[in-house]
Design a protein around this nucleic acid. Structure first.
Length: 154
DNA sequence: GCCAACGTTGGC
DNA sequence: GCCAACGTTGGC
C-alpha cells in the first residue's frame, strides 16, 4: 500500500465535509503531476493524510482512503464549470480523478508547524519551501509517525 | 495583502 | 526551443 497527502482548502471542502459523505470525487485538480498520481499511481485502499491548506493554521487533520478506479473528471467537459477543459473529449480526457472516503479525524490537528519542527517529518514534501503539489506521495514511515504524533490509532 | 516558487502560455 | 509574461499556490 502507498501513502499520500491530499490538500484541501477547508473553506471549500474540509475533513468534516468528508465525514458527511459516502465518498468525494477529487475534482478540479489541474496539475499534471497531481493527475498522474491519481491516474496511475494510486491504488484502492491507499491511505492519505487529509491536509488543510490556506487555513489558520494549516496542517493535517485526518485520514482518507482511495476508493475505486480512476475516471475522467466530469468538470472538464462542462462548459459552465470553472474547471472546463476545451481540449478534453470523453474519448480522450485530459484530467483524471479518484474518489476518497473518510477514515478518521485526528483528535487534534497536526499543524504544519509541528511537522516542520519534528526531526523526521520535516523531510516531508509539504514542509519544503515552494511545495505546491496538491497531492504528495508520503513515505510509509512518515505516515506512521504523523499518525502517532496526532494521537490517531488505525 | 504580500511575495516566493514554479508551472503554463505564447510570441518569436 | 527559448524565454518573458503571466497565473496560481499557499505560507506568512
Amino acid at each position: 500500500m502507498q501513502h499520500w497527502l491530499i490538500k484541501s482548502e477547508p473553506d471549500v471542502f474540509s475533513i468534516d465535509d468528508l465525514a458527511q459523505v459516502t465518498s468525494e470525487p477529487w475534482s478540479g485538480v489541474r496539475n499534471y503531476q497531481d493527475r498522474n498520481f491519481m491516474w496511475k499511481e494510486m491504488k484502492p485502499g491507499d491511505l492519505a493524510l487529509f491536509y488543510h491548506s490556506n487555513a489558520k493554521p494549516p496542517g493535517a487533520v485526518g485520514i482518507a482512503r482511495v476508493v475505486g478506479a480512476p475516471y475522467a473528471d466530469p468538470t472538464q467537459f462542462d462548459p459552465k464549470s470553472e474547471y472546463h477543459e476545451p481540449k478534453s473529449t470523453p474519448e480522450n480526457p485530459r484530467w483524471w480523478l479518484r474518489d476518497f472516503e473518510f477514515v478518521g479525524k485526528f483528535p487534534e490537528m497536526l499543524t504544519l508547524e509541528a511537522l516542520k519542527s519534528d526531526s523526521v517529518l520535516c523531510e516531508m514534501m509539504v514542509c519544503q519551501r515552494g511545495s505546491r503539489l496538491s497531492i504528495n506521495p508520503v513515505d510509509p514511515l512518515h505516515f506512521k509517525r504523523a499518525c502517532k504524533l496526532a494521537g490517531w490509532k488505525p
